[in-house]
């Protein structure tokens, strides 16, 4: 068994154990309807986690993804709904801005953590400008897509599988994906081999922006309207999701399927604690404890592997 396999085994196992516990506590969840309710809000989290993964893959970290998703949600609920052409243009521009931020961070040698902390306030301010008071409406097609009821397998599961498989193909199987991982692995070697790191970083950030846009749209499809503060939690959730899914902060070692599983696990952990009827005072702590537990197990496994 290779390290890559081990990396994916742990998120699969932790999700399976949590799911079994939830089914035990709440047998009603073991149904088409139940699975959809458990996981549909995990879809935007999964998309945001993939966005975060793109950044972590090139050894950076993005503290603005939560406000960026909020901003995209606000644009989707207002401009895309009222004036579609302008709306999609704004979303496209947002993706390009993200790519630009990536390029600037590399060119100027700036710490991504500081730059993205700064841009998080910009996105938050723009979100309030676009939607000063909570409201707006989801485009019809988006709402019917997110709430569709395909036969046999619930929408949430299909969407999560699609996101996982497609990004796996993009990052792990395509040649550009391997090069992108290389930026995190050994930037200098790539540069000597003739690759433009600026372009690659811009591409990674651009992909992050694209998945951020998708997360915002998916969220509005589910909630049917937006709020400038709707996705603030996603910043930390997405980082936790990437790490839980077997990613590491350095070296370009990330796993797209693991990241999706990590996002599902985090969402499920919150439901599990609420089914346990744990007092809210303890819930944040308990969520953290689950995270630490999984990471500790991972550390033990990888240490043994290294020996």
């Amino acid at each position: 068994m290779t390290r890559e396999h081990l990396r994916i085994l742990l998120p699969v196992l932790s999700l399976a154990i949590l799911l079994a516990a939830v089914f035990y506590l709440q047998p009603r969840a073991m149904s088409y309807f139940g699975l959809n309710l458990l996981f549909n809000l995990a879809i935007p989290v999964a998309l945001a986690t993939i966005a975060q993964m793109m950044i972590i893959m090139v050894n950076d970290i993005d503290l603005s993804i939560g406000t960026f998703v909020s901003f995209c949600a606000c644009v989707t609920a207002t401009l895309v709904q009222d004036t579609p052409v302008l709306g999609y243009a704004v979303l496209l521009a947002a993706v390009l801005v993200y790519a630009g931020i990536g390029a600037v961070i590399h060119l100027r040698g700036l710490p991504a953590i500081v730059v993205t902390l700064g841009t998080s306030f910009v996105w938050g301010g723009l979100a309030i400008l676009v939607l000063p008071s909570p409201g707006g409406a989801s485009p019809e097609w988006l709402q019917s897509l997110m709430k569709s009821k395909p036969p046999l397998v619930p929408m949430a599961i299909i969407a999560a599988t699609l996101i996982g498989v497609l990004t796996h193909l993009l990052i792990k199987r395509s040649s550009i994906g391997v090069v992108l991982q290389g930026v995190g692995g050994n930037e200098r070697a790539l540069e000597r081999a003739g690759w433009s790191i600026v372009q690659l970083k811009a591409l990674a950030y651009g992909l992050a922006g694209l998945f951020g846009v998708l997360a915002g749209m998916a969220l509005v499809g589910l909630t049917t309207s937006a709020d400038a503060n709707i996705a603030l939690r996603y910043t930390l959730l997405s980082i936790a999701g990437v790490i839980l899914g077997g990613g590491e902060f350095t070296g370009g070692r990330v796993s797209p399927i693991g990241a999706v599983l990590g996002a599902l696990t985090l969402t499920l952990a919150a439901s599990f604690l609420s089914f346990l009827r744990l007092s809210p005072d303890w819930q944040i702590g308990a969520q953290g404890a689950i995270l630490i537990l999984v990471l500790a197990i991972r550390l033990l496994v990888t240490r043994r592997e290294a020996n």
Partner: peptide, 19 residues
């Protein structure tokens, strides 16, 4: 909810449906 966040409360309400 442990944090004052809308997405968390939405998940909470969905859990209540299941319960």
């Amino acid at each position: 909810t442990s944090e004052n966040q809308a997405t968390e409360q939405a998940a909470q309400i969905q859990n209540m449906i299941l319960q």
